[in-house]
């Protein structure tokens, strides 16, 4: 079986898929939640908290953009 299927590649696909798929969803969800909370705190007049949630959302958005860049790089170098 090991000769028929590239076991190393299969294991790599499984763990990279799990980390990338769940990680990207987590980071993007935090971006959305952070932006929503920042907006809510701003409406309630809590500038400090709004700024903090805005920063969280921004960092996560940058991480998502980085993930897209990595994805395109994988396509370019396959």
């Amino acid at each position: 079986m090991a000769l028929i299927v590239d076991g190393g590649a299969l294991v790599e696909v499984v763990w990279v898929s799990l980390i990338a798929g769940i990680g990207l969803t987590l980071v993007f969800s935090v971006t959305i939640a952070g932006a929503a909370r920042a907006s809510q705190q701003r409406r309630e007049g809590r500038a400090g908290l709004a700024l903090a949630w805005g920063a969280v959302a921004s960092v996560c958005a940058v991480a998502c953009i980085a993930a897209v860049v990595v994805a395109v790089t994988v396509m370019l170098h396959k």
Binding site: D6, A9, L10, E12, V13, V16, S17, A20, G21, I22, L24, T25, F28, A71, V74, M75, K78
Partner: peptide, 17 residues
Amino acid sequence: SSGAAVILAATHAGFPL
């Protein structure tokens, strides 16, 4: 996004999905 992650992971590893 999960689909893209699986496809790109497979592309990277050279595993045909």
